[in-house]
Design a protein around this nucleic acid. Structure first.
Length: 468
RNA sequence: GGUCCCAUCGUCUAGCGGUUAGGACACCGGCCUUUCACGUCGGUAACAGGGGUUCAAGUCCCCUUGGGAUCACCA
C-alpha cells in the first residue's frame, strides 16, 4: 500500500549530462526495484534560464537510456499558484514573514559580515514585523528556528546534523511573487508524495532547511540519499574540458545506451566483483545502501571497454539498425552491397564504438576505393598475380560459397602453391579492402559474395598490371 | 573563513576486527593468429599520516593533512 515514490527533477538549462543521468538512473532503479513510481519533474522556476530545447534534450536523453517515467513530466512553472498558496498559508500561520529589506541592503550587510569574519546570514531585521507596509515590495521569508539541531539519516552518507543556529531565514517567495527553489522542491515533493529523494550531494546543505519546511508544513519528511558527484580525470568537477558530458553526445560518438547505463551505475555503486549488468539485473540487484560515499572519476576507457563488450555480444540486426545513420552520414548506400547485419557480424569483435564499426564497414560498400599506398606497394606486386589467378579460379567454382568453404579453398591454394597463409592473405586483403586491416578475409569474401569478391580481385590484378 | 561531506592500486571498486588486501579498466609481457582485433595466461600497482581501543585495525574512535560541496530574490 505504501509504495515508494521517487523523482528526477532536472532544471532545463542544458542537455542531460552524465551526472544527472546517473542520478536519474539511481532513482529509476529504486522505483522499479520496489515496484514504486518514478516521477519526472521539470524545475523551471527560473524562467529566464529555462528553455524548451533543454526540456526536449533531457527527455530525449532519458528515453535513450531507457528510463521511462510513470508520472509527469510536471512543470513547476505551471504550479506557481500552488506555491503562492502555500506561502500565504505559512504567512497566515506566522511561520513566515514579509521582509522589506532590499536586495542592495542585503548585499551590503552580507559583505560587511564577511569582512568582519562573520557568517553572511540574514540578520532578521524584518523577522519581528507584524503588519504590512502597503505599496512596498517584499519577499517572504521562512521563519526558521534558531535553536536546536536538525539532522537526518542519509541513506548513503549516514547521519548528518546541522545546528539550526547555522541556518537563516531563507526566502521562499521573491519580490515578484515567484517561488524559490528550496520552497518549490519541498512543496512538490510533499504534494507529489515523494518518499525518497535521491539527488546529488551538492544538496546536502539545503536539506536541513528543507526538513524545517516540511515540518512547518506538517508534511512527512522523505528519506534522503545524497550521491557523490562525478569528477574529471584531474579530480575537479566533470566539465567539457574533460570531454563530452552530454549523454546524447555519447550516442553520437557511437556508444550504446546499455553501455552508458552499465558504466554510470558502476561509477559509485558496486555489487561484489560484478562488472556487467543488464537493466533487468540492475533492478534486481540495486540497493541505495551499496552506493559509495566518495566522488568518482569518470573513466572514458572503461566506458569504451563496456561499449565494446555490448557491441560484441549485441544482436546483429539491432546493431545494424543503430549503425545505419553512421553509415548514411558517410554517404553510404547500404542498399548497394552486402546485407548490413552480415557486415556487422564481421565487425563486432573489432569495433569499440558504432563509429569505429562504421569506419570498418565502409569498404564493403565502396567499390572504387583507393588502395592504401604503402599496402599497395608492399602487397600488390607482380609476384602475386598467379596467386590471385588461383584465387579467382577456386572462388569461381566454389560451392557452396561460404566462409568455411572459402577458408578451405585458400588452404588448398596454399598447399598447391607451396606457400603459407601469411603470403596469400595480406595481398588478398589489400585487393578486397584496400588496406592491411580488416576482418578475416574468408568472412569478408563470404559476405561480399562471389561476384563482388571476384571483381575486386580482378580490379587488383588490373592495378598491378597498370603499375608494373 | 563558517558549516557539511569525503579518503584502499593511475582509475572504478571488494573488504563490513584475524585476508598472501580480491576483481575490473588502463598499462607491460607470453600464447593464439591471414592483418587488425577478440580471446586467453601471467605481471607491475593501493589501505594519506599520527595517536588511541583491542590478543588482533584497511576495517572502530580522535587528531592532522589533503580533497570537495555549500554559504543568492540560481537550481
Amino acid at each position: 500500500m505504501s509504495e515508494v515514490r521517487l523523482r528526477f527533477a532536472p532544471s532545463p538549462t542544458g542537455y542531460l549530462h552524465v551526472g544527472g543521468a546517473r542520478t536519474a538512473l539511481f532513482n529509476w532503479l529504486l522505483a522499479r526495484k520496489e515496484n514504486g513510481k518514478f516521477i519526472l519533474r521539470i524545475e523551471d522556476t527560473d524562467v529566464a534560464r529555462s528553455t524548451q530545447e533543454s526540456v526536449d534534450a533531457i527527455l530525449e536523453g532519458m528515453r535513450w537510456l531507457g528510463l521511462d517515467w510513470d508520472e509527469g513530466p510536471f512543470y513547476q512553472s505551471e504550479r506557481f499558484p500552488l506555491y503562492k498558496e502555500f506561502a500565504a498559508r505559512l504567512l497566515a500561520e506566522g511561520k513566515a514573514y514579509r521582509c522589506y529589506c532590499s536586495a542592495e541592503e542585503l548585499e551590503a550587510k552580507r559583505e560587511q559580515a564577511l569582512k568582519e569574519g562573520g557568517k553572511p546570514k540574514y540578520d532578521g531585521t524584518c523577522r519581528g514585523l507584524t503588519g504590512e507596509i502597503p505599496g512596498k515590495p517584499y519577499v517572504v521569508r521562512f521563519k526558521a528556528p534558531h535553536e536546536g539541531v536538525t539532522s537526518f539519516d542519509d541513506l548513503v552518507k549516514g547521519t548528518i546534523s546541522f545546528a539550526n543556529s547555522e541556518l537563516d531565514d531563507l526566502i521562499i517567495q521573491r519580490s515578484d511573487g515567484t517561488p524559490t527553489y528550496n520552497f518549490t522542491v519541498v512543496i512538490d515533493d510533499a504534494t507529489m508524495g515523494v518518499t525518497t529523494v535521491i539527488r546529488g550531494d551538492d544538496h546536502v546543505n539545503n536539506t536541513p532547511r528543507q526538513i524545517l519546511l516540511y515540518q512547518a508544513l506538517g508534511s512527512p519528511v522523505p528519506k534522503f540519499a545524497h550521491v557523490p558527484m562525478i569528477l574529471g580525470a584531474d579530480k575537479t568537477r566533470l566539465s567539457k574540458r574533460h570531454g563530452a558530458t552530454s549523454v546524447m553526445a555519447y550516442r553520437d560518438m557511437g556508444f550504446l545506451p546499455e553501455a552508458m547505463v552499465n558504466y554510470l551505475v558502476r561509477l559509485g555503486w558496486s555489487h561484489g566483483d560484478e562488472e556487467i549488468f543488464s537493466l533487468r539485473e540492475l533492478i534486481d540487484k540495486f540497493t541505495i545502501e551499496a552506493v559509495g560515499r566518495s566522488a568518482g572519476v569518470f573513466n572514458p576507457d572503461k566506458l569504451l571497454w563496456l561499449n565494446a563488450h555490448y557491441i560484441k555480444t549485441g544482436d546483429p540486426q539491432r546493431l545494424a539498425a543503430l549503425l545505419l545513420p553512421f553509415l548514411q552520414e558517410r554517404g553510404v548506400d547500404v542498399g548497394q552491397g552486402p546485407e548490413l547485419a552480415d557486415v556487422v557480424r564481421t565487425l563486432q569483435e573489432r569495433a569499440r564504438t558504432m563509429l569505429e564499426m562504421a569506419d570498418g564497414a565502409l569498404f564493403y560498400y565502396r567499390r572504387a576505393f583507393d588502395y592504401d599506398p604503402q599496402a599497395a606497394e608492399k602487397f600488390l606486386k607482380p609476384e602475386v598475380v598467379p596467386l590471385f589467378e588461383a584465387v579467382r579460379e577456386r572462388l569461381g567454382r566454389l560451392d557452396p560459397f561460404s566462409g568455411e568453404g572459402v577458408e578451405a579453398a585458400f588452404k588448398e591454394i596454399c598447399a598447391e602453391q607451396g606457400i603459407k597463409m601469411g603470403q596469400l592473405g595480406p595481398p588478398v586483403r589489400v585487393a578486397l579492402c584496400g588496406g592491411t586491416t580488416s576482418p578475416s578475409i574468408f568472412e569478408v569474401i563470404a559476405v561480399l559474395g562471389r561476384e563482388d569478391a571476384l571483381q575486386r580481385i580482378a580490379r587488383a590484378l588490373a592495378f598491378i598490371k597498370a603499375h608494373s
